[in-house]
Design a binder for these strands. Structure first.
Length: 279
DNA sequence: GCCCAGGCATTTT
DNA sequence: AAAATGCATGGG
């Protein structure tokens, strides 16, 4: 048991905003599976200190929660107008998380045309069946080797639908060295995105999620159905779109409009839209 | 029954 | 280049 602290850090917003799928808050504590172990966290509302019950070292969680980001500076940079200003003032303290690349890759491939509760259920079922038991109903995320060895018929038993075949193929690409995930850290955003999009089932949106949430590419601007609606509604008349607002152009617009940390802006909008709808 | 969900791939206009 | 459609599954 130890304590974590960082200025501008809100644990609830960070874990509830829909970027990560292996955390739940059944009571006063957040419980999650990270790096093959169960982690329990509780934040003191007054002091902001986070109580940690985990075998993971403090340094790991500080890295995981991106305490190295100067959030005040980042939010100042993306705060371009009254819409973003409102999202920031409501949800300040939401930090992006450094997820594990392999788990993030598979998770966002599963996210295709699924609601967040469905995604969480799918990952949970996949882990329960093909991960390692790490105590009392918790299971680690399956290894690439395990999933690569399956036929997609077996995976379909996990109710993954049309996603099953894609998952097995992706696992085989990773196992075979066709896609070396660690290389994407040093590749620039465009190059990394192109490499991810070679996989069946990874388009612009899924690639952007993986690049933002696992590889820290802040210029990724994932355009899902929520972000698309927000941008159409508030910014659709901008000269940039020249009358036609497509998902691909929305991504380019986000990069242009919010700048090098647009990924953060996207996540604040996404969370606000999910909670409040289009006000 | 309908429509939608952190879409993608393919076909049709 | 934009729009329509099929794809599995679960929830409102």
């Amino acid at each position: 048991m130890y304590e974590l602290f960082c200025e501008d850090f809100n644990l609830d917003y960070t874990l509830d905003c829909g970027q990560v799928f292996r955390w739940d808050k059944p009571g006063d504590w957040w419980v999650g599976v990270v790096k093959g172990s169960v982690v329990r966290l509780q934040q003191d509302k007054v002091t902001g200190k986070v109580l940690v019950d985990s075998s993971l070292p403090k340094e790991f969680l500080e890295h995981y929660f991106r305490f190295d980001d100067d959030l005040d500076d980042i939010l100042r940079r993306v705060n371009r107008d009254v819409f973003m200003d409102e999202a920031i003032s409501k949800y300040r303290g939401l930090r992006l998380i450094r997820q594990d690349p392999w788990e993030c890759l598979i998770s966002y491939m599963l996210a295709t045309a699924w609601s967040i509760p469905n995604i969480k259920r799918g990952i949970s079922l996949l882990s329960a069946r093909y991960g390692k038991k790490i105590g009392d109903g918790y299971y680690s995320f399956p290894e690439p080797e395990t999933l690569a060895g399956l036929c997609d018929g077996e995976l379909r038993d996990c109710k993954l639908g049309f996603r099953s075949g894609r998952i097995v193929k992706a696992a085989r690409h990773v196992m075979g060295g066709n896609l070396v995930l660690d290389e994407l850290f040093s590749a620039d955003y465009r190059e990394a995105r192109q490499r991810l999009m070679f996989l069946e089932g990874i388009g612009e949106k899924v690639a952007d999620c993986i690049l933002l949430f696992a590889f820290g590419k802040m210029e990724a601007f994932p355009v899902d159905t929520h972000v698309e609606k927000v941008v159409r509604y508030y910014y659709g008349s901008h000269e940039f779109f020249n009358g036609s607002v497509t998902k691909s152009k929305i991504g380019d617009w986000g990069r242009m409009y919010f700048g090098e940390y647009c990924g953060y802006a996207q996540q604040y909008f996404f969370y606000q839209k999910r909670l409040e709808g289009l006000v």
